[in-house]
Design a binder for these strands. Sequence first.
DNA 1: TTCTAAAACAGTAATTATTCCTATTTTTAT
DNA 2: ATAAAAATAGGAATAATTACTGTTTTAGAA
Lengths: 129, 129
Amino acid sequence: MNYSRQRESIKEYLMSTHEHPTADIIYQHVKADYPKISLGTVYRNLTLLVDLGEVRKISTGDGTEHYDADTSAHSHYYCRCCHRVMDLEVTPSVDQILAASSAGLGTIEIANLLFTGVCQSCLNEQSKE
Amino acid sequence: MNYSRQRESIKEYLMSTHEHPTADIIYQHVKADYPKISLGTVYRNLTLLVDLGEVRKISTGDGTEHYDADTSAHSHYYCRCCHRVMDLEVTPSVDQILAASSAGLGTIEIANLLFTGVCQSCLNEQSKE
DNA sequence: TTCTAAAACAGTAATTATTCCTATTTTTAT
DNA sequence: ATAAAAATAGGAATAATTACTGTTTTAGAA
């Protein structure tokens, strides 16, 4: 695999934010530095980075995938109202779960715990109306 | 909300299987009883049932959503090779997690734990080659 | 049982996220 | 400097899902 400035820029942006952006948001940001970058390049590199284990893909079920350069064991909270993904310090004892559940299964590469609900700021907005 | 035979059939099929089918698979099955049913009807009713909490949507990140009529607390194992979703008895102490993590957040409606890897049968296939 | 309004439907068109394709440019090693 | 491999931009194609519209079904009241 060869170096590419575009891929580097995508990684850099992802590492600088905690916002779990979608491919399109990443595209818009990287465009500031590389105005000619194409969306296809963003997608291709995201797939690459996920396969390399350098980036985590977060599927919320809202129609777009979110990406996170923080690959440490942590959970996410998804607000089905504003569609934001937030980090959660709380992580279950994934190691124990993995040990307990891996019997009879194949490999386990990713364990993703996702909470869904309506976040505090959306609840505040709703109570105003 | 009014009764509909199509919705009943969708629910019935979902309750009869442990295969976590996609909308299209559900469509093909319900078609056996209702040959004129349209895919749009399947999607609309799935969304309805999920909103009612009678069906669970499982997002694996493989481009299609999976559905499950078993709404009890349980985990899933996703094989990134054959794209099947399987049930896992093992469930972390979600109640504890919820209690611990709900501080400062909004509501928590769904907690989904998804394991991803390559399942035993896919590993067997691969070792043959 | 008719009648009526609301809800649901089938069929199809439209949308949107993502992938694929190709000719050109960049990277890397010689 | 050169050449092969890898990556890119741009645009076309795909596939899952949603939206639209005229027709049918449902449910409740007359």
